[in-house]
Design a protein around this nucleic acid. Structure first.
Lengths: 216, 216
DNA sequence: GTCTATAGCAGGATAGAC
DNA sequence: GTCTATCCTGCTATAGAC
């Protein structure tokens, strides 16, 4: 009669498995793997305590599923947006930087998705688990090699080593502005609204563009 | 006869309380508060399980003591080094940036101290606890206002808002290069030795200097 | 001050009814 | 597939011997 896996939650129909992944990634991003309990996940998802072990085998299995099912999808959308931006932007170094910054900060991700995405990423970078290789191979390498290839067109003389450092400096700012919101708010006195985010994008583009040009 | 609080550990004489703080800050930095147990701390410190509650009241008390006794001391040394560098450096914007970058990355802290310091800082920025206010008021604000004051001399036209963003961009890179070592190593193929660290300093100085100049 | 023992609780995982 | 009840482990914190 009814598909008992499906229910209405905030207007979005999702089954139990999906709901667990959705709630879990929020909590894992916010507090880290060890600071989240299966009891918290299941109660917030409104499902049974045993559901995680039934569907994913273990808490760790759910954590990995978050990356397989959600993180990688977002990473692909980010990379797609970057490459689409590249074609639209004017043919310049600034165009390349702007394409990346816009893809990540104004791109296909909602504000909440972006927060989750980069908090998960930073956590894995600081304290790698089994998900680290997956992220590196399937998400970071493809995006960074696209970026590197685009940069090389305008900076043919820049050594590969400097190129890597440049990409890390840009990444550092993007990750930091997403990760350290409490500090950013304390330092600037601003709330993280759309206007402020746009100012951040402009800042990162301007700062990084000159920084990169200065190295060549 | 003997002071039973004192023992030799790797050549350094420290009492039980100090040993606990020393070991605890390493573990808290590496894994985060919730992922470290008092059993792990006491056993690695070679002291009794009850010692933490006896000396600090609770695990949280020990965590706060890490910041009061160790973090703030390092922060003061960092700020002192920055201001000392400022006097020695040539009178220029580059001198200001270099003073900060050198203070933090080649300054009074050992490599291990720097790793611990900035991992603790990033954790508090991402997920503030009671220690956050302490850090902000006693460590970050003093250093950043020194930096801001020095910058203003060479960039009188730069708005306060842009100044704040600049400082955050510089901080972002420093934090990231200290926090995301696994990723940095994966991306560059380098080990984190002295030579590589020097290259990182040079990179951050060069990248940020041009980035800042471009904004004025 | 330092130790052992243990209280008291929360964690992940599982078994078995429905 | 879902639920409840429960096992067992590990946690923080404390009490009390020495």
């Amino acid at each position: 009669m009814f598909d008992t896996n499906v229910c209405m939650d905030n207007g979005a129909a999702v089954n139990v498995k999906e709901r667990l992944v959705l709630i879990a990634e929020k909590l894992f991003a916010e507090k880290g793997f060890n600071s989240v309990s299966v009891r918290e996940i299941t109660s917030k998802a409104g499902v049974n305590l045993g559901a995680i072990n039934y569907h994913f085998g273990s808490k760790k299995g759910l954590y990995l599923e978050v990356f397989r099912a959600r993180f990688l999808d977002r990473a692909r959308r980010l990379r797609g947006a970057f490459e689409k931006n590249l074609k639209k932007e004017k043919d310049s170094l600034e165009g390349v930087i702007r394409s990346l910054a816009r893809a990540i900060l104004c791109g296909p991700l909602t504000d909440e998705e972006r927060t989750i995405h980069f908090k998960l990423l930073v956590r894995e970078m600081a304290h790698p688990t089994e998900a680290f290789d997956l992220i590196t191979e399937e998400a970071l390498k493809p995006l960074l090699s696209s970026f590197e290839k685009a940069l090389k067109e305008y900076l043919p003389a820049l050594s590969e080593e400097k190129m890597r450092l440049v990409m890390l400096s840009v990444l550092a700012q993007i990750l930091y502005f997403n990760f350290a919101r409490p500090k950013i708010q304390a330092a600037t006195g601003k709330t993280f609204d759309e206007e402020f985010k746009k100012a951040l994008v402009e800042h990162i583009v301007a700062f990084s563009l000159k920084g990169i040009e200065g190295l060549s």
